[in-house]
Design a protein around this nucleic acid. Structure first.
Length: 611
RNA sequence: GGACCCGUGGUGUAGCGGCCCAACAUGCCAGCCUGUCACGCUGGAGAUCGCCGGUUCGAAUCCGGUCGGGUCCGCCA
């Protein structure tokens, strides 16, 4: 029997085939479309499995015909009848069920429907997103949303299968945890039982998964909901889902090897038709990624790499270049293919963009098809030198070289962002390809100029690479007086990010599990162990009871699903997302608290409510 | 916190100082139609142009504010 058979139906609307012809059976679903020819009415019956054509003949079934005449789009109906082969020449090859049709004997209206706010049966017609969100349950009926939600389900299903196959234990961690002062802003939940105290919603289960390693669970994973109270973007939401995993007795290579194999297996399971550009995944050190792509999440689907033009810029006589180099900065350029003919306004636009990204300006050198050089700086540096710079930037005739001179890293980052913008404008990326890559060896610490101290680049528990452990144990001077010259500032971490098509999928690290090293690391950031105990007390305590070497990673499921389904907006792969201002337009949340709710929590609202 | 874009019948668009008490498509309603599958044909209803204020003889159109949505910068791993 068909496993989808229920009280109301024998088959789904996607099941009926020639083999079922001659059977009397029932289907149930939404009326996708009605074609009323008078004595003959066709109903396209839809559910998430497909569409089956129902024929209602006034002669054959007068009662069913009368019912079908009152039916409208999106009514939910049950049709009982004989499944018949379609008349020769009337088959519909566009439908999987197109060779058959259900000849209605009975049509039962299970539910009527108002006219929907936007057409369900014409998904190509884009509706306003606010309307889609308000009527998300209708939007989810539409084929594109349905397809993406199903793809996401397959993604999570494949993730679970691979992890279970590899001995991972799936463990749920609490949603009401302790506020930690690091990272993003916490969502806070006031405690009723302990007035004045709050829980925080987890930004990630980071501490908990490390504690699970101390517990000896050895391999943990979770499809974990995470919360961050920051401003929203197309690729972010206040609540989002991570694949969170942690492994014991591992070195960096172990985690990366497992994750890479898992990612490949999952990708092939979810989108078998999409080629993975490189496997094994390319690996870049953080430094190399910045120097070559100006990004720690490079898009490898196209070249247009950055090139250091310091050698050519030195002694060029162009003051911006000279001063930048003298100040220890960088002059970097890239060659935009075929853009030599770009108009003045396009170049101006790119310059504005570069400024918005933090650069002081943008220098362009066009190599015309003839090989002639055209550049605002040509008369300062000379055609030969301009051409030499263009060549060094990898330009061919017809290309436009864009050059940014600024302090180290900023110059690359600005140009890296221009690279992404140009890649999009020029359509350089193959949309089918999945270009995964690793970026690793991040610096352990970043010098916080404003506060005059070192800060963890990622997780403060990330371990240095083995060769750099010594750097942490040989602090230059007084740890209470940090300096950007501290040798420990050069330490690289066993930290790895996974990027896909220019998006950061996620990142992780091997953690420090030794108390003395942890103490060193914390003191680098100007914290005492006591001070850190306030923030990470349980984990530090746990480390005194036998902690295995461990490491892990967290990958953004929403972002992954988004890329796998060719989207650029995370909302398109979430069933019930929020708007940029954090509202749920369907549920109309957030909503004002009842006065009694404040009181119960021992709180009083003092600010003026919005509006 | 900041910059920019959008808001016109149910939906998608057009109109961007007077030809507009607003056009087109689709949807909706009614009628006709026995092989349609974006069915077809005929007829009809439906928008004070997000809201408030201003400029003007005259505002969907220009200006200011406001609300909602989006994109980006900052923020955020």
């Amino acid at each position: 029997m068909n496993p989808m058979q229920t009280h109301f139906r024998d088959l789904t609307c996607g099941d009926a085939r020639r083999e079922h012809v001659g059977r009397r059976l029932s289907l149930a679903g939404w009326v996708h479309r009605r074609r009323d020819l008078g004595q003959l009415i066709f109903l396209d019956l839809r559910d998430r499995y497909g569409i089956t054509q129902v024929v209602v003949d006034a002669q054959e079934a007068p009662h069913a015909h009368a019912a079908a005449a009152t039916v409208r789009n999106e009514f939910v109906v049950r049709v009982e009848g004989m499944l018949a082969a379609r008349l020769p020449g009337t088959e519909n090859p566009k439908l999987a069920t197109g060779e058959v049709e259900l000849r209605a004997a009975e049509v039962t209206i299970l539910s009527t429907a108002r006219t929907p706010a936007f057409p369900i049966n014409e998904p190509d017609q884009e509706a306003d997103e606010a309307v889609r969100l308000r009527f998300r349950y209708l939007d989810l009926r539409r084929e594109p949303m349905l397809r993406r939600i199903l793809a996401r389900s397959r993604l999570v299903e494949a993730i679970r299968a691979v992890h279970h196959d590899h001995g991972f234990v799936e463990i749920e961690t609490p949603m009401l945890i302790k506020s930690t002062p690091e990272g993003a802003r916490d969502f806070i939940v006031p405690s009723r039982l302990q007035p004045g105290s709050v829980y925080a919603l987890p930004q990630s289960p980071q501490q908990l998964k490390q504690l699970l390693m101390v517990s000896g669970l050895d391999r943990y994973f979770q499809i974990a909901r995470c919360f961050r109270d920051e401003d929203l973007r197309g690729d972010s939401q206040p609540e989002f889902t991570q694949l969170d995993l942690e492994m014991s007795f591992v070195a960096e290579e172990d985690v990366m090897a497992f994750v890479e194999a898992m990612v490949i297996e999952v990708s092939r399971a979810v989108v078998p038709e999409r080629p993975i550009q490189h496997a094994p995944f390319p690996r870049f050190t953080h430094r190399e990624a910045l120097d070559r792509f100006g990004s720690d999440k490079p898009d490898l689907r196209y070249g247009m790499e950055l090139h250091d033009l310091g050698e050519q810029a030195r002694g060029s006589g162009f003051r911006v270049f000279e001063e930048t180099l003298a100040g220890g900065g960088r002059v970097v350029g890239l060659a935009a293919p075929g853009m030599a003919t770009a108009s003045r306004s396009t170049v101006d636009e790119l310059t504005e963009l570069a400024k918005r990204f933090g650069a002081k300006g943008l220098v362009s050198i066009a190599i015309e098809g003839s090989g002639a050089v055209r550049s605002p700086i040509a008369k300062i540096v000379g055609d030969d030198r301009a051409e030499a710079m263009a060549v060094a930037a990898g330009a061919s005739p017809g290309d436009l070289v864009l050059i940014v001179a600024d302090r180290d890293v900023l110059a690359q980052e600005v140009l890296g962002r221009l690279r992404v913008e140009l890649g999009a404008r020029l359509g350089l990326a193959d949309q089918e390809v999945l270009a995964y890559c690793w970026v690793h060896r991040f610096p352990m610490y970043q010098w916080d100029v404003e506060n005059g101290r070192w800060d963890a680049t990622h997780n403060p528990f990330s371990a240095p690479i083995p060769e750099h452990v010594e750097l942490l144990t040989t602090l230059s001077g007084d740890p209470s007086r940090p300096s950007p010259e501290d040798p420990a500032g050069r330490a690289l971490a066993q930290q790895y990010d996974l990027a896909l098509n220019g998006w950061e999928l996620g990142g992780g690290s091997v953690r420090i599990h030794q108390r003395d090293l942890l103490e060193r690391s914390f003191s680098m950031m100007g914290h005492t162990l006591e001070g850190m105990r306030q923030k990470f007390g349980a984990l530090l305590d746990a480390f005194e009871y036998g902690a295995p070497p461990h490491g892990g990673i967290a990958l953004g499921i929403d972002r992954w699903a988004m890329i796998l389904t060719y989207q650029t907006n995370i909302r398109e792969v979430m069933a019930f997302p929020k708007t940029q201002s954090g509202s749920d337009l369907m549920l109309e949340s957030p909503s004002p608290a009842e006065p009694g709710q404040w009181a119960e929590l021992g709180l009083r609202f003092v600010g003026a409510p919005k509006g």
